[in-house]
Amino acid sequence: MQTDINEGMLETRLVRVRGRVQGIGYREACVHRAHELGVTGWVRNRMDESIEAMLQGSPKQLADMCAWLSEGMSAALVEELEVTEVQPPFARFDSFERLPTE
């Protein structure tokens, strides 16, 4: 796992991805990409057919991950990417994982 997180640069974002993103392997691909970038957090399906991800990393890591979320998987059709900054204090994640549907 790549480590690019310095205490002063750690940021957290809650991202909602809407469009055709469920049933195509999007979450697994998201986990793989997060591991490549060194991003920590989680991803899960939502009952409204969107995907929700909690991302933690440096500003560059988060920018790269959000760019991938909007365009990185050719089978996906992302219609909207809603990004919300999570203000400190926030829990620190040690890894990136796939959570059950909520």
Rank of each mutant, 00 (worst) to 15 (best):
T101P: 13
S74R: 08
R92Q: 14
S70H: 02
L69T: 00
V78E: 11
Q87L: 06
Q87D: 02
A34S: 09
V15W: 02
R44K: 13
S95E: 11
A29C: 06
Q22F: 09
I51Q: 00
Q61S: 08
Q56C: 05
V17E: 03
T12K: 15
A34C: 12
R20S: 14
G38N: 11
T101S: 15
L37G: 02
S74W: 08
R33S: 04
T40K: 08
Q2M: 04
E79Q: 15
D48L: 12
R16V: 13
W68G: 00
Q87V: 03
R44I: 02
S50G: 14
Q61Y: 06
Q61P: 07
R13V: 00
G38M: 08
R18M: 14
I51G: 00
V43L: 03
A91N: 10
M9R: 07
L55V: 00
E52K: 05
V17Y: 02
L69G: 00
G23I: 10
E52T: 07
V15T: 02
D64H: 11
E102R: 14
A34T: 05
A91G: 12
A29H: 09
G57L: 01
G57I: 00
N45F: 07
S58E: 05
V15G: 02
W68L: 01
S74T: 11
E28H: 13
C66H: 03
G23K: 12
A63N: 10
R13P: 00
E11V: 02
R18A: 15
P59N: 00
V43A: 04
R92M: 09
R44Q: 09
M1T: 15
R98C: 04
T40M: 06
M65L: 06
L69V: 01
Q61K: 07
A67D: 14
L99W: 02
L99P: 00
L55F: 06
R33K: 15
E82G: 03
A91T: 13
H35M: 05
